[in-house]
């Protein structure tokens, strides 16, 4: 079982997101593995463990300085990683192009049996890269899976939709983008951290991917602070609600 996992790095949630002159101030950012990718990697490792054989390889398009971050990812059970060094100005389509090239080069003529991605990145939350990658690789995909069951043919998958759960079946090779709650990711043991130092991180120089299709043109901090008015009791609170909700 050959399994690819895509991983990106995002500011941890405690980071101060500061916009200076329309650009992000990176000086105080602490980057971590995208939380959704933790579920993706955990699922990949579980599948490999269940099969008792196979390999889990992490693919990331990230600045060349991201090797240490990748070591932490490897400590969560991946066998190796492929880093495509990029600047952070690429758009999701270019990212998907680079990842598909890296996957094709790494596995040669055969596709991996499974690709796991996070449902979304917590920085830009675009939810574009996984499906675009599946489309470029020419494989089936299911986004935002909350349950997976291996079958003789492939997998039965469930994903959340408005007011319900969509159940589908899919054959390999397939890409799943993974929702929070699919599993509970393990913590890396000290041993695993030590082992991760010996695992390979290959650098694949970025190929040509054409011009971006979407350009970021501005960032502006949101002022969320409001002047809260306090109600004295439930009656007063209802007054406010009734008024706003046009109940009256």
């Amino acid at each position: 079982m050959k399994i690819a996992v895509t991983v990106c790095f995002v500011p941890d949630t405690a980071s101060v997101i500061d916009i200076v002159d329309g650009a992000l101030d990176r000086s105080r950012l602490n980057l971590v593995m995208n939380p959704f990718d933790e579920y993706a990697l955990e699922e990949a490792v579980r599948v490999r463990e269940r099969h008792g054989e196979g390999s889990v390889t992490v693919f990331s398009a990230a600045p060349a300085s991201s090797k240490e971050l990748l070591r932490k990812v490897l400590a969560r059970g991946a066998d190796g990683a492929v880093l495509v060094p990029v600047e952070d100005t690429i758009d999701p389509w270019q990212t998907a192009m680079l990842l598909s090239q890296a996957v094709s080069v790494f596995y040669g003529d055969v596709l991996p049996d499974l690709v796991f991605s996070g449902k979304k990145s917590t920085d830009f939350q675009s939810e574009h890269v996984p499906v675009m990658l599946a489309e470029l690789l020419g494989i089936a995909s299911v986004s935002g899976v909350i349950a997976l069951k291996e079958t003789a043919e492939g997998f039965d998958a469930e994903r959340e939709i408005e007011n319900g759960i969509e159940c589908s079946s899919v054959k390999l090779p397939v890409l799943f983008s993974v929702e929070k709650g699919l599993n509970t990711p393990r913590n890396a043991s000290i041993r695993a951290v030590m082992d991760a130092r010996k695992k390979p991180i290959e650098i694949f120089p970025a190929g040509l991917v054409g011009k971006p299709r979407v350009r970021l043109t501005g960032l502006e901090a949101v002022v969320r602070k409001k002047q809260c008015r306090f109600a004295g009791d439930e009656k007063e609170l209802l007054g406010v609600l009734a008024n706003e909700l046009h109940l009256s």
């Binding site: 500011p11 949630t13 997101i17 916009i19 992000l24 917590t122 920085d123 830009f124 011009k211 971006p212 299709r213 979407v214 350009r215 970021l216 043109t217 501005g218 960032l219 502006e220 901090a221 949101v222 969320r224």
Partner: peptide
């Protein structure tokens, strides 16, 4: 960024 920032994008 956790809704702390609004981004503008342009189609190319």
């Amino acid at each position: 960024y956790a809704a702390s920032v609004v981004a503008s994008f342009a189609a190319e």
